[in-house]
Design a protein around this nucleic acid. Structure first.
Lengths: 192, 192
DNA sequence: GCATTACCCTAGGAGCCCTAGGTAGAGGGA
DNA sequence: TCCCTCTACCTAGGGCTCCTAGGGTAATGC
């Protein structure tokens, strides 16, 4: 049972790293800055975390779990287009509230870590959306990928200012895009 | 007229940086590594490029121009779904051939540089795809954003291994997703 | 009360970005 | 031909980063 002397724990380190990433950007998340935030020398952190890579992995895993939680509760009790919209908004809202954590989700995890993380829950949740649309299995996988791509792409491009600086209009386009995705799920092109 | 003594020019520097980025990843593009590649000390590069940021911007601008060129020639003489598929494949193929340059396109450019770059051509080209689908103006903008998001998202997720490691299946899902996008463009949900 | 544990430290090496100031060779002008 | 200038490249060096090695000290467990 590890005892905290200046309050540094792998757990608290990860949470603080996530907050720091949200403030300065995931790419600027640094061991030195994190140590500074704890009033501690950077070398001291290496007792709790193997290296910067592991720290970033921890933030990524945290973010994946948080998003999965939000998505799950957004999906609860909804079906069809309702579920689609709720899921997509949960995803987008999280990215806007926690840009650093969102960026962390792109961080490449080694297969073991990914398996142990909530990455799997994500595909399952995305699949749950499709339950209301009655898609047969091979099409379901394709649809999951398209949805995931569209959500991820839209949120990323929006975050990096890819749509010009019209936040209001971007909201409208977002709704319209969700309408469009609903249409395509109801009229998924048959195999062949 | 600048004279080359060891062959270092802003031009050649940019091209070499793009190649280096493709090899080691855009995030690992470094002034030192680039200097090493030219058999020169890192400090020497600062006569040609202001700093690392400018170097990355140059690579981003180069990549945007190259992609726009490919997209333009893919679009030539095509319309409707043909155009959609050709454009999307040009985009995806470029990302696979030049992952570093592709990542560079995400690099945030300041507004002036973005304006001077090929970023504008990109929206115009994406809009050109829609010409065959006869969408009225407010919907057109939304559709451009959805298409861009889906292409960008799919290619990014694929590149970072987000779809598991089934390259063949990923090709199939890609075609299916393009089919689906074609469907949604032909049945775009009316305003309201 | 004492040994163990683990938390945090200092010291230091290596790599990176970038600035300041110096040297050598190519080009043009007298 | 000689010199002057311009510039491509250099060395020196400061600051920040990641990370390792090894030491001190306080709290825990007996």
């Amino acid at each position: 049972m590890p005892v905290a002397r200046a309050g540094v724990t792998a757990e608290r380190l990860t949470r603080a790293a996530a907050e720091l990433a949200d403030e300065v950007g995931f790419a600027n998340l640094t061991v030195s800055a994190l140590a500074r935030r704890f009033g501690v020398k950077d070398a001291s952190l290496y007792s709790h975390v193997r290296n910067l890579r592991e720290l970033k992995e921890r933030v990524a895993v945290l973010a994946l779990a948080e998003v999965a939680d939000r998505a799950a509760s957004a999906l609860a009790g909804r079906a069809g287009k309702d579920a689609l919209v709720a899921f997509a908004n949960a995803y987008r809202d999280y990215a806007r509230e926690h840009p650093g954590r969102y960026a962390a989700m792109q961080f490449p995890l080694d297969p073991e870590t990914a398996e142990a993380s909530a990455a799997r829950r994500h595909s399952e949740l995305t699949r749950a959306i499709l339950r209301g649309y009655q898609l047969p299995e091979p099409d379901q996988t394709d649809a999951v990928r398209l949805l995931h791509s569209a959500f991820y792409g839209y949120v990323s491009l929006e975050a990096m200012g890819g749509f010009g600086h019209h936040p209001r209009e971007s909201d409208v386009s977002w709704s319209r895009s969700l309408d469009a995705l609903d249409v395509v799920l109801r009229n998924w092109p048959g195999a062949g």
